[in-house]
C-alpha cells in the first residue's frame, strides 16, 4: 500500500516538474503569470497612484504596497486558467490518455498538474515581493510576513488551479478554458484586489465585500501594509480552503464522470 502511495507521489512530482518546465519554456504560458500582472501592476501604480490621497484610503507607505497583494492573486487566477488550458491541451493531444492507461491513480495525474501550479504560485509570490522591495515597498511584518505570503499565495494558486483543472476535465477543450480568461478579470474587478472595497463604486463595492477573493487579498495585504491581523488571516485561510475544496470536489466529480463515460 505504501509502495503504491510512493509510486503515485513520484508521478505527482514528475508531472508537476513537467508542468513547471512547460510554462517556463513557453512564453505564451509564462506571460500571463508574470509579465502581464507585472505590467498591470506598474501601470496601475503609476496611473492610479494618486488614490492614496483620497479620504478613507487605508494608511499605506505607497500605492505599490497596497497593489502587491492584488498582483499576486491576479497571477494565481491566471495560473489556474493557464494550468487548465495546459491540461485541456494534454487531453486534446491524448497525453492524459496515456497517463490514465498507466497503473497510477487518476487523481495523481490531476494532482501533478496542480503541484506544478502551486510551485508557480510560490514563484510569483517571491517575484512580486522582490519587485515590491526593489521599487520601494516594504513588508511591515518582515521576513515572517513574507514567508506567510509565499505559503498563502501558493495555496491560492492550488485552489484556483483545481477549478481550472475541473473545467478542463469536464469540457476537454483548451479553447473553452481559454475563453474563460475574461472571467478571471470579472472576479478580480469584483474584489478588493486593486482598490479598497469601501472606495469602489456600486454594485461592485457590495460584491467585493463578500467575494472570497477579497478575503484572500486582505490576508495577503495586511502583513504588507500593516502587520498580521488574526481575523483577516483566518478569513483568508478559510477562503482558500473553501475554494480549494470546491475545486477538488469538482475535479473528483469530473474524473468519476470520465470513468463512467469511458474516456
Amino acid at each position: 500500500m505504501s509502495g503504491r502511495l510512493a509510486a503515485n507521489a513520484r508521478v505527482v512530482a514528475a508531472l508537476g516538474a513537467r508542468s513547471v518546465r512547460q510554462t517556463v519554456r513557453r512564453p505564451q504560458l509564462a506571460a500571463p503569470l508574470i509579465i502581464f500582472p507585472t505590467l498591470l501592476l506598474a501601470i496601475q501604480t503609476g496611473g492610479a497612484g494618486g488614490a492614496v490621497d483620497l479620504p478613507e484610503f487605508p494608511d499605506v507607505n505607497g500605492f505599490l504596497d497596497f497593489m502587491l497583494a492584488g498582483a499576486m492573486v491576479q497571477s494565481c487566477l491566471l495560473a489556474g486558467n493557464t494550468g487548465g488550458i495546459a491540461l485541456a491541451l494534454d487531453i486534446e493531444m491524448g497525453f492524459t490518455d496515456r497517463l490514465f492507461a498507466a497503473p497510477v491513480s487518476r487523481y495523481a495525474v490531476v494532482l501533478g498538474r496542480l503541484a506544478g501550479t502551486t510551485v508557480l504560485g510560490a514563484f510569483t509570490a517571491v517575484w512580486f515581493i522582490t519587485i515590491g522591495l526593489i521599487f520601494g515597498a516594504s513588508i511591515e511584518e518582515g521576513l515572517l510576513g513574507a514567508l506567510w505570503i509565499v505559503v498563502l499565495v501558493a495555496s491560492t494558486a492550488l485552489a484556483f488551479g483545481s477549478i481550472g483543472a475541473a473545467i478542463a476535465l469536464r469540457t476537454n477543450s483548451a479553447s473553452v478554458v481559454q475563453g474563460l480568461f475574461p472571467l478571471v478579470f470579472v472576479v478580480l474587478f469584483l474584489s478588493s484586489a486593486f482598490f479598497p472595497a469601501n472606495l469602489m463604486l456600486e454594485p461592485a463595492a457590495s460584491v467585493a465585500e463578500y467575494n472570497p477573493l477579497s478575503f484572500i487579498v486582505e490576508g495577503l495585504r495586511e502583513p504588507i501594509i500593516a502587520g498580521f491581523d488574526g481575523g483577516d488571516e483566518l478569513l483568508a485561510v478559510v477562503s482558500v480552503l473553501g475554494v480549494g475544496a470546491f475545486g477538488l470536489w469538482m475535479c473528483a466529480l469530473a474524473l468519476t464522470g470520465r470513468v463512467r463515460r469511458g474516456v
Binding site: A51, L54, S175, G179, F185, V186
Partner: peptide
C-alpha cells in the same frame, strides 16, 4: 464557434471593472 466572444467581452469587462474599481479617482 465562440471565438469572437472573449475579444468582444474583454474590453467591456475591463471597462466595467476598471470604472467600478477606480471610479473614486474623480474625487481627487
Amino acid at each position: 464557434p465562440g471565438a469572437a466572444i472573449p475579444g468582444v467581452l474583454a474590453p467591456t469587462i475591463f471597462f466595467l471593472g476598471l470604472t467600478s474599481v477606480f471610479g473614486s479617482l474623480t474625487l481627487l
